[in-house]
Every structure is written in C-alpha cells, then in structure tokens.
Design a protein around this nucleic acid. Structure first.
Lengths: 255, 255
DNA sequence: GGAGTGCGTTGCATCATGTGCAACGCTGAT
DNA sequence: ATCAGCGTTGCACATGATGCAACGCACTCC
C-alpha cells in the first residue's frame, strides 16, 4: 500500500542474512541506489539499520530493543516462563513456547537443553505446522471449520520418512492430538530430533500457546520421550494456571 | 528524509510498550488516521505489526525473527557465547555482553543469574555509559580524542550516591579502567546491584564488546565481587581468543 | 604516480504517491 | 431505535519520493 515503506521493509529483510552494501541492496530490491540511500538514512535515524564502516549496512539495535520489549509485553510468555524454566531444569532438554500468529507458529520463548547436541531454532523463527509438535497443538486448537480449511490450504513438504504428506493424514493426526491432549513429532521434521508438545490455556480454556520439549534421538528413544509426557503436561498445566486457566469442568474436547 | 517511512517507524516504536488502537496511534504520532491505517497495513503485510482482534495492534513476529537473525550474524556474540555460558555456570551470576553502537552501549547477549534476585535488563536494552561497567569499558576503548569528546557531550543523570556526575570525574575513571583492565560499577546505577566488566578483543586488539558480571549486593559485598575479577578476565580472554585475538605482545595501553 | 574503477553522495526536474478530508458503515451501548 | 465510537473507503491535491546524471572520494592496477 505504501511504496516507500514497503521497499524499506524489504531492505530490512534483505539485511537480516548478512551485511550488504548500498549497491547490493539496490540491485536486490530493484530500486535506484539513491532511493535506497535515502531509505537507509531514515532507517538509520531510527536505529533500524546501522552503518558499519563506510560501505556496509547491518541491522541496528532498535530491532532487538523492540523485539524484546514486545515479547515482554506478551502475557503468555511472561506467565509461562517459570513453568518453562522448571521443565528445562528438571529434564535438561530444550523447551520451546510457540504461539499462533497469521496462520503460522512462531517461537516466542526458548530454554536451551543442557546437552551439547542442540536443536537449531531461535525465538522468532516460524515453525512448520504439519511436521512439528507445536504446530499440531496450535492447529488442533482451532475451531473445526478453520482447522480443516487451513489443513487443506497447507503445503506438505516432506522432510523425513515420517513426515505427514497430505491433508487427510494431517486432519486425522489432529484428532489424535485432541484426544490425547498432547502432540508428538516423531522425527517428522528432522531425522535426529523428536518432540512432544501440549497446549497452554487461558481463562476461558482457549489455547494461548504450545509448550514443547525437543530431544535428540541419540539421547532418548521414543519410549523415553513419551515417558516425559506427564512432566510436559504438568508444566503446561502450571503455565495455564498462571495464565488464568482453572482446571475444573471444561467439559468435552475443548472450545 | 522519508516522511512515510519515518512515520511508520515512529508507529512501530509507539507499539513497543503496549497494544494500541488506530485512533490512539493517529493522535500519538500526529497523523491522520487514514494515513496510519495505510501504513499499518503495509507493516502488517511484512509481519512487522499484527492485528489483534478488531481494534488493537501489536508488534508482529518479523521483529523477533529479524532481531534474532541479526544477533546470530554478529560474530562477537557467537564467538563469545561459550565463554559467557561458562562464566555464568561457574559463578551463578548474571552475565552480559554489550557492544558499542551509535554512541550507546547495547546488550547483545545475556545469561540470567541462578538466584531469585535478578537484575532487570534485556537483550536490546541500551545501557548508560557513565554509570555502568560495560559503558565504561566501551568508552575507555575509544581513541583518546573521541573518548574525551564523548565524555563532554554526555549527560550525567545521578541515580545513586555513587553515580559519577561530571565529565572530569568520568575521564579520570576511564583512565583507571584502562590501567586496571576492567571496570567497576559500585552501585552507581542501582543501589542494590554492582557490576564488573572487561573488554573482549578482536584480532587486531580492538575492543569488540564488553563482558560483565552483575551481582546483587545482598549476595556479595564489594570485596566478594572484586574476588571474581580473575574469573571475569579469564572469561573475557577466552572470548577474545575465540574472536581471533592473540595474547602476546600488544604493548602499551591499548590501540 | 596517473588513469581507471567502484561506490557512496548530491541537486534537480518530474509526477507518482502519500496525504487529509469527508462521508460511510459496522459494532456495541444506552 | 438512536447514538457514539472507530475502522474503512474514494477522491482530489500537491507534497514528497523517485530516477537520473554528474560529482567526488578511496583504492587499485598498470
């Protein structure tokens, strides 16, 4: 809608991967370099980009500042944090908190596992919906109509032998998730990692986020992972309580 | 330089603290609401802001994504991480890594202390130059002329009884920092926290960042804190080595 | 050491784009 | 049923963003 802003945001995105020069940016975005220069100057004045030496631009400190201020403002994150920390402490494995936004799952918090083999991820990263435990939990929580619509509109890239490849299988899996109260990703995204996830609920029982535990297969086989489900559910419940959820009633499947 | 972009970035900043409605934003930035709406739409299409319900906007996931991708791209941060983690593990106290950017110190990494009394800070937060240990280390590392010019242009708000209040005292303190190889913040910013910091150097001996240890006074008195200096320096050296620094020669004060 | 190359920077003329306005319509409250 | 609050749309205007071409600085290659 706004051309200059659109271009500026594209510039910022282009700088995310590595520092670039003015000419590189101009070519990449397809805009005259004098225009790029002016946009960069404005971005720079707001600390969105930072000039490094004479000819390289990188992202600036405003990004970290805004991102973290915004994360702090998220009630789910703040409320769930102690539960994540405790789960991480108790199990020693990587713990994630993810929320559903714009039809995508986004990691909003993370505690690193204590082992040297670590899963690659980061706060802000978007997670696939069809092959991650958090994705399944979040989509399963949608009203049936939305869930089905979304499932049919997804792409199903295959990453491992276990990856779910089509909407039918995915919808069946979601039913299983609802029935069990937790989701499993049995090396469906990466061969050497499997995860379990459970929903964090708010006052009205609605799902606010998904809490997950990610474990390298070389540390724990599938049975070992499933043995952690009670710990996971306890942590998710603790987080839910802190978000205003009250255990009682809440009849039926959900909603 | 670019009006619309400038306004858009101001909008984003306004959303950092709390979610707001269109009208609130329009008034706050002093722009017609239809204009704000268009800017927000563009921001939304890039996931910079996210619409919550019908009438509230919050910052979106692109911020987290960009911020973290950019942090990962910082070589100092990546290289120094193991040293920070080890120092945090060994001492149990809060460890920060800060870099100098646009005449400000910015926290680029943080490991929380293990105790329940914690210092308030976050990655992306900017630290005062005159009353924090990291600030002193980073300013002390500037070439003398720049250092003096900067010291004279600073404001010196007083936060505690120990806060340095003018440029002369600050410059003297910086000399002390250079001589000792580390900086001390003896409750100069907050009454109940004191910190020590040391420089992390790159291949040519230049200061890339400052590494600090922050401890509540109720846990450790000043002597206890100073007893940690060797640990701090060892960690800073380890981080420096990983950044390409080689210990030998490097005669004189610095440079 | 002088010409050449690469890249950031500037002033300017053009008109596309962003802007404010006023009217509309939805939602929720009285 | 009426009203108020707030987001949304279409439109006409001119402001501000754009591309161009020329400039200048730093660094390199012959």
């Amino acid at each position: 809608m706004s051309q200059s802003l659109d271009r500026a945001l594209t510039l910022v995105a282009a700088l995310a991967d590595e520092t670039k020069t003015l000419d590189q940016l101009a070519e990449e975005v397809g805009v005259h370099k004098s225009t790029v220069l002016r946009l960069l100057r404005t971005l720079e004045s707001h600390h969105f980009v930072h000039r490094e030496g004479a000819r390289h631009y990188r992202l600036g400190s405003a990004l970290f500042d805004l991102a973290n201020r915004s994360l702090e403002q998220r009630d789910v994150r703040r409320s769930a944090e102690p539960a994540l920390a405790a789960l991480n402490e108790r199990t020693g494995h990587t713990v994630h908190l993810a929320s559903f936004e714009d039809d995508e799952a986004v990691y909003i918090d993370k505690f690193e596992g204590h082992h040297s083999v670590r899963m690659y991820s980061r706060v802000g990263k978007r997670a696939r919906l069809h092959c991650t435990a958090v994705g399944k939990v979040l989509v399963a929580a949608l009203p049936p109509a939305r869930r089905e619509e979304l499932a049919r509109s997804l792409e199903y890239p295959v990453f491992t032998a276990g990856t779910i490849g089509d909407a039918e299988a995915y919808l069946a899996e979601l039913d299983r998730v609802l029935a069990c109260g937790y989701a499993l990703d049995a090396t469906e995204h990466e061969d050497f990692i499997h995860c379990i996830a459970a929903p964090v609920r708010g006052a009205r029982g609605e799902v606010l986020a998904a809490l997950s535990l990610s474990v390298p297969t070389m540390l724990l086989d599938i049975d070992g992972l499933l043995a952690l489900v009670p710990d996971l559910l306890a942590a998710a419940e603790e987080a839910s309580v802190r978000c205003g959820w009250s255990k009682k009633e809440q009849g039926g499947t959900s909603r």
